[in-house]
């Protein structure tokens, strides 16, 4: 059964500065929607507003049921923030247990994690830390996933694996993905939007990105 997430009427002001004013996005399970935008245009604010951890005017609904703090329903939505978010003192075993994700399958995909289940996240490199965070969010049992710059800190050799995981999980989940690697976003996402001047613009070709001054 398909589920539909509708994001509309999002309005966010920081003082007198209007960050978001006219945003509409519809994401269905089975879709991967891309969101591009320059630094500081409000991509992370939009995601956090949708998730419910940033107060703003908004209308968020899943299957016509409206939510204000959707983060309180983890079976409906999970969010990968731009920064590290897992407490450093937790072990990989504990993290995978909390998210109910199979560690063995993860270690098979990423062999450097074999026999490291008891390691604490603070013992990992920055890239490995980010890989763990991304994987547990991708594999967690939920309907919609917001990914804020998922490819940051990840080695290029793992980007293809991550892409494949997103594509396979998109079979029964809806994704909203934002990143600066716009060619990769355009490869895996459809549709792709550009957030500019507080509004979302549909991007069909790379020429649209030039016209909207996202690329030179």
């Amino acid at each position: 059964m398909k589920h539909a997430l509708e994001i509309s009427s999002v309005r966010l002001l920081f003082g007198e500065r209007l960050i978001l004013s006219d945003v509409y996005l519809k994401i269905e399970t089975g879709n991967i929607v891309g969101l591009l935008g320059q630094n500081g245009c409000g991509k992370s604010c939009l995601m956090r507003g949708v998730y419910g951890t940033l107060t703003c005017e908004k209308s968020i609904s899943i299957d016509d049921i409206y939510f204000f703090d959707i983060y309180k329903q983890p079976h409906l939505m999970r969010y990968l923030p731009q920064h590290y978010f897992i407490p450093k003192w937790l072990s990989l075993k504990r993290i995978f247990h909390d998210f109910r994700v199979d560690y063995t399958a993860f270690a098979q995909l990423f062999p450097e994690f074999q026999d490291r289940e008891k390691a604490k996240i603070k013992d990992l490199s920055g890239g490995m830390h980010r890989l763990v965070e991304l994987y547990v969010i991708l594999k967690s049992d939920t309907q919609f996933i917001l990914l804020d710059e998922p490819f940051t800190h990840i080695s290029p050799v793992y980007n293809d694996i991550i892409e494949n995981i997103i594509l396979s999980e998109a079979g029964n989940k809806g994704f909203l993905v934002t990143d600066h690697m716009y060619r990769r976003i355009r490869k895996i996402c459809d549709p792709v939007y550009l957030l500019s001047n507080g509004k979302t613009h549909l991007v069909k070709e790379e020429e649209d990105l030039r016209e909207l001054r996202y690329v030179p």
């Binding site: 998730y51 951890t53 329903q73 983890p74 969010y79 590290y84 978010f85 407490p87």
Partner: peptide, 13 residues
């Protein structure tokens, strides 16, 4: 404050 997002992903405010 970034650690809050770990708990938010489990529905905890």
């Amino acid at each position: 404050k970034q650690i809050y997002f770990y708990f938010h992903n489990f529905g905890l405010s």
